[in-house]
Design a binder for these strands. Structure first.
Lengths: 216, 216, 216, 216
DNA sequence: GATGAATGAGTCTTCATTCAT
DNA sequence: GATGAATGAAGACTCATTCAT
């Protein structure tokens, strides 16, 4: 079936080309967003930066908003994949290690594309609210909830739901603040120590008998 | 001196009229900002909402940005007046009380005009950066720094600068998050307890001998 | 009649005050026109420059146009008074002297307020056409016509109407061009010589018998 | 090569469409300028007059000024093409003929689009100064300078620079004045005679021996 | 008459989106 | 599907003019 093969090959080629165009558009959008900010990022500029015509842009995205949303989703997905991978493993670790993992992964997640992240956080809320970006926090929240439920006996907090909210909010905020306003802290291991300490101490963790580690 | 009186009266009348216009514009801006968001808040809409002509708007504010900035300044000033009043008194209290004060005042500050606050925080960065809004955090930070310096001996942290950053960021974030996403928590006294606990435990506070207060 | 006197005095005082206001407005308009150009000369600016309120401006002039027109008229009147004074005397002089007078007075007329003149010539035509400014030329034209009529016998031109048009247009243009583009020429006596020569030679003037002066 | 042909054809079609739009805009601008004057010629009006949207106007011209400037350039170019063609040939002719050529070409140049010329001269200085319009005079001036240099021996003037300035200014002014205020003169051959006479007599031209032409 | 705050029509300009080719 | 010229609604801002005080 050479014909069918040819057709298929062509279709694939076409699909690949489409994917490449979409890819170029997303990348260009991120670039323009970082370079110019949301207000000055016009669809024409983005199309030009992607080496594509405006018409093509609208072939793949029904509106500027949709385009930016796609960039945002993608960024969040990147961050989430960081978070998920690490946290599913942390469930079985003792609190000190798990907390440290949480802190580390939050920092890592925020470090994915700091500049894009900043634009997305500072300027895009208008487009869809912070809902998407907050999915990272939600994800962390739900995994933390699970963790606390499983380790409740060794913790000194009563309202686990609230405890989870507090832990995640603090870690997220500290990470976020560090990324945006104290970038120097990001490489500072003592910063990780301190944030971890916030969590451990708040949760009133007591090392189980025979576990000599910890009390800071 | 009827003449002088008349003159002054007229001037006052005039000044009051101007002030009323400015007032109406600021209020309308806040309202429109909340209702429509920054992008859709056009100067014409704002003027209309203020019951004033565009011309008048531009008589008092050289640009849309300037108008929004004025609203922002004013909002921050409101928040700051809350913060300052309480915190200057807290310096001489023991940590549990001082921490509780800090938490309460941050909640109070964020509750000034929550919806406006949200818009201002989420959408206005483009206008002037977060600099103004952050003044609240800065203020709290500097007062916290002072407090920690004065009470260092009864605390278990070493880097006071970092400790202050962490404490303020956490309290700010928790307050902020509560205002924006868990409004129910704001009336919940146990929320205050928990946030206070984050601070006290993180700072490793030990009640002085014979002080029976406090649950940690 | 002290009362009447008083009333009249007041009226005069008032009239004088009005005149002073009008004067201040005209002067301010000229100043602002020179400083800012027609487009940027707003009525508010002019009123401010005159130390008067916009309202008062409109008390005396029904529109911006009217105000500018008044300035223009006044400027033209200044120029015309220069022209008339000199030219009425020149009618009885022989051509070489009369021509020189014409040239001199045109230069003098254009030198009245060169900067204002420039603005008036370059930017104001929109307001009323060049009609007013051209009155200077018209005046010169009519006096020249008279002169040529009286001295026709000693001249080598036939169509006196056309000759007058040509003479005045040339002198006006040369003066004008010198004022606007070759200011250095204005003090240059040889420039006067040359312009005078244009006139004399064109008119084919022959010195009457026994008159030894001239042939340049 | 049907593909290449198609591509090229499309490109051409597109280019032609653009060119047509630009052309329509320039023509409309000239029309509106003549009909309404610079101040009342808004970009929206011009676009409408061109049967094009404002957006298209701004696609090709970054501002109203740029658009008017383009019209001006074009007009000047038309005038210049008249001037250059004729004057390069006149250099080798004796003065009477050359002067007549100069006069004729200046009249022709000013007659290109008299109404547009008037608006351009009277109202546009604000846009770019008279620099562009004056290029016509400059061109004539420089060619006249050359001519006078080449024929100095048969002329009775000393300062060739000044003589050129005077000749060109007079011819320009007379032409200009005729176009604007005495249109009837334009068809009148005796007007050409007179203007030519101004030049010839001023320059003190003496016909070479055996040359019987000329009336001065 | 004076004042200057208020007015609002109208200007230039941008940019997301459409559509003929 | 791609192209990019064309569209036009909408926005920020100005300024001659009015009018309540």
């Amino acid at each position: 079936m050479p014909r069918a093969a040819a057709t298929k090959a062509r279709k694939q080629a076409t699909q690949e080309r489409s994917r490449a165009t979409v890819e170029a558009l997303l990348a260009a959008t991120a670039r323009v967003l970082v370079r110019e900010g949301y207000d000055r990022a016009s669809t024409n500029k983005i199309a030009a930066a992607a080496g594509v015509s405006v018409g093509s842009l609208y072939q793949y995205f029904p509106s500027k908003e949709a385009l930016v949303a796609a960039v945002q989703d993608r960024h969040v997905e990147h961050m989430l994949s960081e978070v998920r991978a690490t946290m599913t493993q942390a469930v079985h670790r003792p609190l000190p290690e798990a907390a440290r993992e949480l802190v580390r992964v939050m920092i890592a997640a925020h470090a994915v594309s700091p500049k894009l992240h900043r634009v997305l956080v500072e300027q895009i809320p208008r487009v869809r609210g912070l809902a998407q970006i907050e999915r990272v926090g939600e994800e962390a929240l739900s995994m933390t909830r699970v963790y606390l439920g499983a380790h409740a006996s060794s913790l000194a907090v009563e309202d686990l739901e609230m405890a989870a909210f507090i832990v995640v909010t603090c870690v997220e905020a500290l990470t976020h603040a560090a990324v945006l306003y104290r970038p120097a802290l990001l490489g500072d291991e003592s910063f990780v120590d301190e944030v971890t300490a916030v969590v451990i101490r708040y949760l009133g963790y007591r090392a189980p008998e025979g576990d000599a580690r910890e009390r800071t």
